[in-house]
Design a binder for these strands. Structure first.
Length: 556
DNA sequence: GCCGTTTTCGGCCCGACTGTTTTCAGTCG
């Protein structure tokens, strides 16, 4: 059992206990243990072998016994017992925004509703409003929530789909006679939401490939098998298709299957793909198509084909251009790891600098720093910096933009920092005019350097807030403020459209992982893909600049 | 459930919004 799987079970146990109206602090203990296990650097199995599971903070003797039971048997007694007592449908209902454990238990007791279908039917029939404390508004929110849930089941975030595609590819590659393999489709193009995972395989003998695909442990279902393809379902409801071609057909098929559909139809229009057999690379395919090589992230028919005809594509930002990172959290607020850990992880990534930007005081729930703690943290950073060679930790803050557009620290505190990211974490439902004015006020503050996750969207969970983006871009340009591409795969905010527009105006972009633990730094790659989808070049992105130049830009 | 130790019991980040009420419970971040 992996750490993730243990964490998942602990979380489900917390949900089930909560639905049973168990002691809220017991529930909290399970959630905390889940979070700790999830962020743990070491494999739990190794901790277990050292007999040290009970030494993990937040894990006492009872939690330890259950985790050890999971590692030994794949489950635990309490989990099995709760599964028996709490219908799965109640857990499904928890993912509807606005429905918590109390409401769900109430609906279960009053109306006997224990799954989403019954819930939807009851809402449509106007039965929900007969329950005390619930009205027409709740009914319509439930229907909206179920709709959103259905939509989110259609597509998976890139952060889940891309690693799944890579793991699956690694498994298939082990079959004998595989000549080449690659994830293709929207995963390869770096789209934030992925409908299905496509994998292209080149081999002489397709039988081996088929057998290898079917043997993969994550495959839940095989829905169709053709001469040269297999379709089915992976865990987490992810659809997949494995496409098999002969080795001589690999590279033109790579271009074909990477898409997008519109792109490929235009590029291959009037072409016989048989004439493209035997190529040695995708570059060669493009050459034969009479085009400059177009990177996968650009293949959306948004002007790239025309540019490629005249050899006029921009040179896109590459992962290796990135030399530092400007937005991470530590255990001073809601991060899992301490300053040293985050610094050494950044050094391992080859970075020259890392900005520590914990939450500000208003964000109580996330352990926001009081002015004093912020000062103390600054001192700790100064001390650490003494030890580093050719690496610098920056003193920063992700400061809350308050409802009225004021910031959560006084200007003199902000002024003392190397870097200030201003972000919205509350009052998501202001109207567009108020929300825009609020953010523009933050942009106008001379001590703010970057605006974090501008639109606040959470993919598959929450739409962006109402905003007049053009007005904000104009203000950001006027005040020379940097916009963040938040690289967390649940956000990817700002999106490629806003980023492209911003860069065209001359607004600089920071790609930030918003990491809450060491591993989180690696999520930057999704932000880089978004930047490439936005046609950003090295010079548009400040993570590629020398530190002096960045600080100069901030404090000009 | 966990934790600490002047307490092995009694605490355990909390403030704001939403929808339902007419003073508040539930949810969320």
């Amino acid at each position: 059992m992996t750490n993730r799987e243990v964490a998942w079970i602990l979380n489900v146990m917390a949900d089930m206990l909560e639905l049973k109206n168990d002691n809220p602090y017991r529930v909290k203990a399970y959630r905390k243990a889940a979070r700790t296990v999830y962020h743990l650097d070491e494999d739990l199995r190794d901790v277990y072998l050292r007999n040290a599971v009970g030494e993990i903070p937040g894990i006492g003797s009872r939690m330890r016994d259950q985790i050890e039971e999971m590692l030994e048997t794949g489950s635990c007694n309490l989990f099995a017992q709760l599964r028996h007592e709490v219908p799965q449908g109640l857990l499904d209902m928890l993912s509807i925004p606005g429905l918590g454990h109390k409401t769900i238990r109430n609906l279960y007791q009053e109306l006997g509703i224990d799954n989403l279908e019954e819930l939807a039917a009851a809402a449509e029939a106007g039965q929900i409003r007969t329950v005390p404390g619930m009205g027409a508004k709740t009914e319509s929110n439930i229907l909206k929530g179920i709709d959103l849930l259905k939509q989110s089941r259609e597509k998976t975030t890139l952060g889940l789909a891309a690693p799944a595609a890579e793991d699956f590819s690694r498994h298939i590659r082990r079959a004998p006679g595989i000549v080449a393999i690659s994830p293709v489709g929207s995963v390869r193009r770096g789209k934030p939401l992925v409908g299905d995972i496509d994998i292209l395989v080149a081999a002489e003998d397709f039988n081996n490939v088929r057998a290898q695909v079917v043997s993969y442990g994550q495959v839940q279902d095989i829905s169709r098998v053709g001469i040269d393809y297999i379709q089915g379902l992976l865990q987490h409801n992810m659809k997949f298709e494995v496409i098999m071609v002969k080795p001589e057909d690999y590279y033109h098929s790579l271009t074909w299957t990477t898409g997008s559909k519109e792109f490929r139809e235009l590029v291959f229009r009037g072409r016989d793909r048989n004439h493209l057999q035997g190529m040695e690379s995708e570059e060669e395919v493009f050459e034969h198509l009479g085009l400059q090589y177009i990177p996968p992230e650009m293949r959306e028919n948004r002007g790239e084909i025309e540019k490629a005809r005249i050899n006029g594509l921009p040179v896109l930002l590459k992962p290796s251009d990135i030399i530092g990172e400007l937005h991470v959290h530590t255990d001073w607020s809601d991060g899992a790891h301490n300053l040293q850990d985050m610094a050494s992880m950044a050094q391992k990534m080859g970075y020259c600098f890392l900005a520590i930007t914990d939450h500000s005081q208003s964000l109580h729930i996330s352990g926001g720093l009081s002015p004093k703690r912020l000062r103390d943290q600054g001192q700790a950073i100064d001390e650490l910096n003494q030890e580093f060679k050719e690496f610098t930790l920056l003193k920063g803050s992700e400061v809350d933009i308050l409802k009225d557009g004021n910031l959560d620290y006084h200007d003199d505190i902000l002024q003392s920092l190397d870097l200030v990211i201003a972000s919205v974490h509350s009052h998501f439902k202001l109207d567009a005019k108020q929300q825009t004015a609020r953010i523009i006020k933050a942009i106008e503050n001379p001590y703010v350097h970057i605006i974090g996750h501008l639109t606040g969207r959470l993919l598959n969970r929450r739409p962006p807030y109402e905003l007049y983006v053009d007005q904000i871009l104009a203000a950001a340009y006027e005040h020379q403020k940097v916009l963040e591409i938040n690289a967390h795969p649940d956000r990817l905010d700002i999106d490629e459209d806003i980023a492209r527009k911003a860069a065209q105006m001359g607004i600089k972009i920071a790609i930030n992982s918003d990491a809450h633990d060491g591993k989180g730094l690696q999520l930057l790659k999704y932000g880089i893909m978004t930047a490439r989808r936005a046609w950003l070049r090295e010079k548009d992105v400040i993570n590629t600049w020398e530190l002096d130049r960045i600080l100069d830009y901030f404090h000009h």
